[in-house]
Amino acid sequence: MTKPLLTINDMSITFTSPDEADIEAVRQVDLTLTPGKTLALVGESGCGKSVTARAVLRLLDKNAKIPTGEILFDTGSGAVDIAKLKSDSLAMRALRGAEISMIFQEPMSSLSPVHTIGDQVDEIIILHDRLNKKQARERTVSLLDQVGVPGARDRANAYPFELSGGLRQRAMIAMALACTPKLLIADEPTTALDVTTQAQILDLLRQLQDDFGMAMLFITHDLGVVAEIADDIAVMYLGDVVEQGDVFDVFRAPKHPYTQALMNSVPRLMRKAERQRLTPIKGTVPSPKDRPVGCAFTSRCPHAFAPCPTVRPERTQIGADHVARCHLLTHVREEAMA
C-alpha cells in the first residue's frame, strides 16, 4: 500500500458566534488520501463536507476553529500538521496552490473577471516556479491544451466571461494544476454544469489524475458522480462521517442506515414494470444545535434504539477497508457474545 499523502485524524471544527453557543460543524473526522486515488466526500447540504475540505487549505471563516485533531500532509520531507499552521503563515501559503489546490462549483466567482485566463495561469506559474513570462505562457498554453481547451493559444487571451461554463471550469482546472499539486480538492466542480459537460469534466479529471498522479478530494452530493469517479467514499451526515471505505464495498453493502437510506432515495434507471416506489428518509435534517449527543442520525433513523441518542457509536471495522459508526454493528456482536 502506498504511503498516505494526507491523513486527517480526529479533526473537529467549531464555529463560534458572539450571541450563541458554539456549533460543532464537523466532529472527529478521520480521512486518508493516497496519491493517485480519489476520495469522495458525500452528503446533503449542511453536512459539513465543504467545511472539512476547506479546513485542509485553512480557508475557513474567521469564526471557525479546529480545536482538536490533526491534518498531516506529507510534503515528501516529513509531515506537516496543517491544523497547527496559521492560515496566513508562509508555510501554509507555500502549500496552498503549489502542493494543494482547489477547484470550485462556480468558476466565474473564482476567476478574476478583469484578467485573461492566460494571465491568471501565468501568474501562478511565475509566482511558484520562478519562470519568466514567455516560459510561463508556454506552460500555460500546454496546460490549457491538456485540459481540453480548444485553440489554447488563442483562448489564453480570452476573458472568463467570453467562455462557456464548461470551458471556464476547464480553465480553472488548468489554474489548479499549474504547479502540479499533489492534492486537488474539488468542491462540487460539476454541480453547476449540464450533464454532458459534467461527463466531460469528470473524464478530464480522471485523465489528469492518471497523468499527474495527484490525490483528489472530491466533494459532491451526487451519488452518481461518486460512483463514476471515486476510489473511496466517506459519507457525512450533520458533521459526522457515518461510513467510509472502498467505493465498491460501500455501494454494494452499505452498513449505516443513513447510507442505505441515501442510496434508496436516488431513482434508479428501471423499466416501468420493475419500477419501485422510492423510500425516502423521513423528516428533515435537524439544525446542528439540535444534534443529539449520540448518533447524529438518530432522529430520522428507522432502526434507532436505546443507546443511539446518548452514546456516540464508535468506528467499527466492517471489512478490510470499510468502516461505519453505528450501534447496530456493535450491538449485534455484543448480543452474540452474551
Binding site: V195, T196, Q198, A199, L202, D222, L223, G224, V225, V226, A227, E228, A230, V247, F248, F251, R252, M263, V266, R268, L269
Partner: peptide, 8 residues
C-alpha cells in the same frame, strides 16, 4: 453522460 449510482 448520465452518471449511474453504481460503481460496478
Amino acid at each position: 453522460a448520465l452518471p449511474i449510482a453504481d460503481p460496478s
